[in-house]
Design a protein around this nucleic acid. Sequence first.
DNA 1: AGTTGCAACAGGGA
DNA 2: CTCCCTGTTGCAAC
Lengths: 277, 277
Amino acid sequence: MPELPEIRVIAAQMDKELSGKKVADAEPRQPKNLNVPVEDFVKAVKGKTVSHVTSKGKWIFAELEHGYLLLINLGMYGELLYYAKGQKLPERYQFRLAFADGSGFTIFFSWFGYVHIVTERDASKHNMTGKLGIDPFNNGFTFGRFDDLLTSKRRTRLKSFIMDQKNVAGVGNVYAQDILFGARLHPDREISTLTKEERRGFYDSIKNVLSRSVELGGLAYEKDFYGRNGKFGASEFKVGYKEGKPCPACGTTIQKIKTGSTSTYICPKCQPLKKIN
Amino acid sequence: MPELPEIRVIAAQMDKELSGKKVADAEPRQPKNLNVPVEDFVKAVKGKTVSHVTSKGKWIFAELEHGYLLLINLGMYGELLYYAKGQKLPERYQFRLAFADGSGFTIFFSWFGYVHIVTERDASKHNMTGKLGIDPFNNGFTFGRFDDLLTSKRRTRLKSFIMDQKNVAGVGNVYAQDILFGARLHPDREISTLTKEERRGFYDSIKNVLSRSVELGGLAYEKDFYGRNGKFGASEFKVGYKEGKPCPACGTTIQKIKTGSTSTYICPKCQPLKKIN
DNA sequence: AGTTGCAACAGGGA
DNA sequence: CTCCCTGTTGCAAC
C-alpha cells in the first residue's frame, strides 16, 4: 500500500539523512528480493557513498557513487526504517544496509518487495523501472502531456489507466479512489468518453489528492523513515473505504463495486457510468 | 481451409511436376498478396529454375535457383492449379506463374492469401514462416519433442495449443476436431491437467488424423494441383461437423460448442472437461 | 494491495 | 474461420 506520497516522503528523508554516508555492509536475508546473487549485490554496494536519494512513482532511487543505483520497492506493505548508531534493530526484517558511521536502515516486507542494484548506464533496461510513466511531481507532468497520454489510450477504462504504472507512476488502489471521485469520474468509464473538462478535472484531481497526502506525511497507517505514521487518515478520504457512508458532496450512500480484479468505492450519483445529458 | 494434408499433397505434386522448369513470367494481379512491389517480385523469379517444392504446415516452400524461396499460403480457401501448355486458364485467379515450356499454375484466393519471395538467407526473418513450429511429418516431430512443447505451455487450452502455428505447424479448425476426439480430449482442457498417457495419445492422434488424410489426398471439398478433389469426405470425420449425430465410439449425441472464438464438435461423454476419477 | 508475464479476447486489416 | 498486429483485461506467481 505504500504509494507515491509515502514513498516520496521516505525518499526525501533518506536523502537528507543518508547522503554522504558510506555503505559498510549489506545484509540481504532473502535472495529473492534481489536481482543479482547475494555476493554480487554486497560487492556492488560495499564501500560506496550515497550521493542522492529520489523517488519515481512507488520506487525509491538511491544513487551511489560510481554510477550505481539502488532501486527499492516495498510491494504491498513494507517498513523501511532508519536506525542510529547503537539503536536496537526491528525484530523482523529481510534486508539491512549498514553505514560506516554505525547507522543504517532495515526493510521489512510483509509480502514481497524488491531491492535491486543496477548501473546508471543500464537503468533504462531495468524491467520494473525502465518503463515507468511520468511521476506526477515531475515538472514535465503538464496537462498537455497528460492529455496526450489519454489520447493514446482511448479504449482503456479510467481506473486501469490511472493504476498502470506505465502511464502515470505512483497511483495504486488507495489513492485511485479519491482521485476518481475528485474528478467525479466512474472507474469504468472509457477514456474516449471523456470531455475536455473531464480530462482537465482528472489531471487536477491527481495532483490535488497526492499533494494533500504528501503535505500530511502520507497515510496514517504507514510509517516513514523514522517510524512515524503519516496524518492522511480516514477523515481525509472522501469516498475511499467509506462503504455505506454518505457522499461528502451529495449525501448518497457510497458503494463498493468490483472493477476488474480490484474494488472501488464510488458515489453512484456523483460518478455515473453513463453520461447524463 | 487448406490445412497440412491438402498443402502437403499439392507440394508433392508441384515438386514432381515443376522441378527443373524455368520461370518465364509471373502475373501477380493483386499486389497485396506479395511482400515486395510487383516489379521486384517479377524480376526476382523470372528466368529462375524451380529446384524443389516442399511444405511446412500450411505453407508451400518452392525453392528456386540462386537461393530464392517462394512462400505460398492459400488462406481460408484457395485453388492452386496446374495448367499444361495450351490449356485454358481458370476464369478467375489473382496470381499466375508461367514456365518456359508453356505450362504454369494459377492461384485463386477466395478471400486472402500470400505469395512471398525471400532469399534463403533471410528466410528465418520472414514473419509468417520464420516462427512456424515443427511440421508433424518432420522426422524431428518425436513424442519427446512434443512433450517438451506441452510442458512449456502449461496454462494453454488444448485447442488453442494445437491451432497455434508456432507450436505445431499445419493444424487448423478442421482437423483439430478429430485430433482432439481421437485422443478423447476436451478442447478446453488445460495442458497442465494432462496425464502422460493423454499427452502420448494427443501426439499419436495428430499423426493418425493427418496421415490418414494425406493418404486419401486431402479433403473431399478441396482441389489438388490437378483440380481433383481429395477423398477425405464426411464419412471420414469422427465428430467434426457431425452435430446431432451419434458418437462413433459410444453413441452419445455429438455437440457443437463454442471454444473461444471458434466452434468445436465433441462427444461430451468421450471428451469430458473435468477428469472423472 | 505491488509487480510481472501469460493467455484470452476483441477489433481492424491484408 | 488464414494470417498478422495492437491494445486491454484477467489470472497466477514471486
